[in-house]
Amino acid sequence: MTAVPTSGAAADPRRRRPAIGLIAGLVILGLSLLTAFLPGLVAPHDPLSFDYKAILHGPSLVHPFGTDNFGRDMLSRVIWAYRIDMQIAVFTTLFPILFGTMVGALVGFYDGIAAQIFGRIVDAVITFPFIVLVIAIVAVLGPGLGNMYIAVGMVGWVFYARLIAAEMRVQMRLDYAAAGRVLGYGDVRIIVRHLLPNAIGPVLVYWMTDMALSILLGSALGYLGLGARPPAAEWGVLIADGKNFMTTAWWMTIFPGVAIVLTGLGFSLLGDAVAELLRPRR
């Protein structure tokens, strides 16, 4: 990776976007996290209580997102789903980022036979359509969120490891890494204190994208009946519940989808802004 400055980039008015993108991303994700932690404070109704006098009611002042086929308030269900879906975003990516960073740092630093084996693992994993692999593992382990985390963890770390290994190799060629060796620092100190802090940037950017992708994956599995189980309010499950009522009660499907898009947007805006902030220093 060579840091060739693009002459036209400075003239690109989009360069002003990081600030706007950063603020928008932070606001969206801040509110999403708040909702995830305190759904009871934000939701106007109980997400699970049936109201047979209010079945499939359209959006109104009492039920801004309408009600479902059991008379449950859709706004409250979408709000409570924040808790599960934000948990999916964090838990799905936690093991991959930690383990992947560790493996990637070692493979990038030491090279040799380990790097060769790693290269072949990467080839095989990126060849498997990710969702097919996850679905196959969930099929074997059984449906549910816990098994989804295991399935993603088994393959997801490879992408982080590949990123960090590539970045470590770039950093190791720079003078400061050589200086560390000349000063007689141990490998662990050079990796953890010197190289990793400089190599972690792309991983953080990818993490943002990955959290958005995890929500898409989690909701897809929920939709297929392989992720969160009903009656838990999860956006994919809510969309699956609503799809048969799409022509008569569109609000059951549309609003959970809007929540997914909005949260995904928050992650990608923040990711883009972080990438932009990291760029001038490189």
Binding site: I239, M246, I260, S268
Partner: peptide, 18 residues
């Protein structure tokens, strides 16, 4: 396209289908 990136494929499908 930013919206397109954040939209789950099954959701896009249901919306197009409808």
């Amino acid at each position: 396209f930013q919206v397109g990136l954040s939209m789950p494929v099954f959701y896009t499908g249901i919306v197009f289908l409808t």
